[in-house]
């Protein structure tokens, strides 16, 4: 079955919305003419970023890389916070590129630093999903539908909220259980193998960036399991790290699928494609 695609002018607007959103969450929504959403995403993403940096004493920057040009710092690379690109650069300038640790203190002295890491990391992940949301609002504006139906960006966001939920909203019950069961099951198995201590930025910063892609299921689990530490070297803790990180990446795959399928449904309904217009009605 041939996938449908938005018209060329709409595609251009969608691409601009994604680019603007990745620079500054909310800016892409202005491109779609949605001021309310623009304000919501700007406040949410910047609030999480700056709130998280404040709770963790800017120690997030210890996990990033500062790029220099001619001896001058010009760019802070920090994953996954970089999804909120200009926010991170502005915060790095405000913090004078220094963290608590660079100032001679240990991050352990900050009791809420792990919550801070989760908040700033969530800001980056949500910023990337805000880009998808802004992009789909351009489609919604250019090819409106009379009946109620989940938008592509709404489906992607729902998948981030709970893997499988985006497919449920677009009427794909089988894929709901397939993605939801697989991703949450893999994450649960991974956490069990790591004795619920393997979602830890300080110990595994690169794995942590991948784990953050799981969304609120992972973020809440990490917050609840925060006091847990590896009591010893566990036999399958490496597999646990792999599984939980893979669950994060699989969430992105599921979100891409839910976006693409919901977009196809939307276009089929908007254009009245025979035999497909009713597919995926919410």
């Amino acid at each position: 079955m041939q996938a449908l695609a938005p018209a060329e002018p709409t595609r251009k607007r969608m691409e601009r919305a994604v680019g603007l959103s990745l620079l500054l969450p909310g800016a892409g929504h202005l491109q779609a003419g949605r001021f309310g959403w623009a304000l919501f995403w700007a406040i949410l993403c910047q609030g999480l970023l700056f709130g998280g940096l404040s709770l963790a004493g800017n120690s997030q920057f210890d996990y990033g890389k500062l790029i220099h040009l001619g001896g001058r710092p010009i760019l802070m690379l920090l994953i996954p916070e970089m999804g909120n690109f200009l926010g991170v650069q502005f915060a790095a300038v405000l913090a004078k590129m220094h963290s608590v640790e660079a100032g001679g203190h240990l991050p352990e002295h900050l009791p809420w630093r792990n919550l801070g890491y989760l908040m700033s990391g969530a800001s980056g992940v949500l910023s990337a999903f805000a880009a998808a949301h802004a992009s789909s609002l351009c489609l919604v504006r250019d090819e409106p539908l009379a009946q109620r139906r989940v938008s592509p960006g709404g489906a992607a966001l729902a998948t981030l909220l709970l893997p499988g939920l985006g497919h449920w909203l677009s009427g794909r019950r089988f894929k709901t259980w397939l993605f939801g069961g697989t991703i949450v099951g893999l994450f649960a198995l991974g956490m069990t193998l790591g004795d619920f201590a393997d979602f830890d930025r300080q110990r595994h910063p690169y794995y942590w960036a991948g784990q953050m892609l799981l969304g609120p299921v992972g973020w809440i689990t990490a917050f609840l399991c925060e006091p847990q530490r590896f009591p010893s070297v566990l036999p399958y803790q490496d597999a646990g790290l792999l599984f939980t990180t893979a669950a994060g990446f699989f969430t992105v795959i599921a979100a891409l699928d839910s976006y693409h399928r919901a977009e196809d449904d939307w276009l089929a309904a908007a254009r009245g494609v025979p035999g497909r217009a009713a597919a995926g009605a919410a």
């Binding site: 894929k175 397939l178 993605f179 697989t182 991703i183 099951g185 893999l186 599984f243 893979a246 699989f250 795959i253 599921a254 891409l256 699928d257």
Partner: peptide, 10 residues
Amino acid sequence: AALAMVVSGY
């Protein structure tokens, strides 16, 4: 199994 199901689902 997890990898195969996610890729096939996509």
